[in-house]
Every structure is written in structure tokens, then in C-alpha cells.
Design a binder for these strands. Sequence first.
DNA 1: ACAAAAGATAAGCACATGCTTATGATTCGT
DNA 2: ACGAATCATAAGCATGTGCTTATCTTTTGT
Lengths: 108, 108
Amino acid sequence: MNAAAAENKIFHALADPSRRAIFESLARGEAAVKGLTARFDISQPAVSQHLAALKDAGLVNSRREGRCVYYRVKPRGMKPLIDWVAHYRVFWSDRVDRLERLLEKMDQ
Amino acid sequence: MNAAAAENKIFHALADPSRRAIFESLARGEAAVKGLTARFDISQPAVSQHLAALKDAGLVNSRREGRCVYYRVKPRGMKPLIDWVAHYRVFWSDRVDRLERLLEKMDQ
DNA sequence: ACAAAAGATAAGCACATGCTTATGATTCGT
DNA sequence: ACGAATCATAAGCATGTGCTTATCTTTTGT
């Protein structure tokens, strides 16, 4: 999958408020579909569909344990988003820019 | 406008491929509606509507000069997006997280 | 083996969205 | 003053999207 396609899926996945809320919830810790359904005021299928979109975007992973399926944030899932934003870092702040340069030095 | 509303508008604005392409084009330099319409294979009203969405999200500014309206990237427009991403930087790599703390020390 | 639990998938529906064409509002050139 | 140029807005339409209920699959407990 090229970069543009990855950006598309990630931006699309995070554009929906419910989906972003689920992702933010997962960022605070692993959770099963049952648990997520309890927190948000939408049906279980709706949660599963959102999770499928997040997974397709590479933002989350799933792990089956018996009847339950636990979802968790994929560590480097947001990398395409980071890279896209970093491409326009010239418009942010000098501090982030310095962070970038420092990272490059440490990579060497 | 609270942070959540700003995130919503920005993610929504950048979720559409055409709109993101227009934004990326503006990132390479200021442009008028006429010029953008020439580059992208959509009608002028479509371009204007996309620009309105980008402007509503705080991502671009506009400047009128005679009959032409020039759009350009708003310097800190992506800050809400940066902040949102930074909030989950713990999932990128531990290295980045440590560097962030190091940078904070250096700021003092 | 059977029923319940947990989740994924299918079908359908109300609504949002991105595009078009048509038109309105300003501004420039002559 | 008048027509052309530039852009914004309105109206309409085809498609996409998020939600629901219903159902299927898999697994657990008894």
C-alpha cells in the first residue's frame, strides 16, 4: 500500500467522532468489544464496524481470547499520519523542528 | 471553540482526498481559486467549497486582491492536529517520548 | 448436547457529502 | 456604462456513511 492510500484510510478512520472516541479509549488501554459497547451509546455492531475501520487503517490490532476479542492501539499505526504532518512541519513551531533534527542525529 | 470541535473540523477537512490535495498544493505556495481550478479536474464551485471547508477548519487564510482571492496555508492551523497526535506519542516509540522530555529540560 | 455469551456480518434506512449546473455579487478593462 | 472575469452561493442529484435490527459463527459453561 502506497503512502497516499494509507493517509486516506487513516484520515477517514479518524474523521468520525465515534471512531476517534473509540481509538482514544483504546489508547488508554486494551479493551474488548463488549467493554467498548458498554462505554459508548451505540450498538455492538456499530462498535465492531468502527473497529474494523480502525483495523483496516492499521491503527489497531486485535487479539482473540476465548469468546472475547481484545483490541489495542497498534504502536506505529499513526506513523503515516505523523509523516504527513511532519512534511509541513515548517508551518508549526521551531521546537518541533528542533525535535526532528535531534532525532535525525540520534539515528546516526 | 473547544479542542474537540477543532479536531473534528480538521480531521473532516483533511479526510477528503481532493481537499487534502488542495491543501498540499497551497502548502507549496499561495494560489488563487482560478489557478487551483486549473490544476484539479473539478469545477470552480467545487474548489470554492473545498476552500471554504479548509478555511472553516482554520487550515487556510484568504486574501482578496481585486477580482482574485488568494488562499494560503495558515501557519499554526494544524496545531490542534499536532496536539492531538502528540497526546498519543507514547505509542510511536519510547525514544521520541524520551526526547520530548529531554527537549523540555533544554527549554528550561 | 444444549443454551448462553461474544462478536462479525448482512440488509436496510436516514442522512451527510461531494459533485454538478445555474445564478448572484464584485471588480476590472474599455 | 457595459461586458467580461473571478469567485461565492443555491439547488439538485448520485453516492457514501453511520446507525439500526436480524442473523450467523465461535466459544464457554453445565
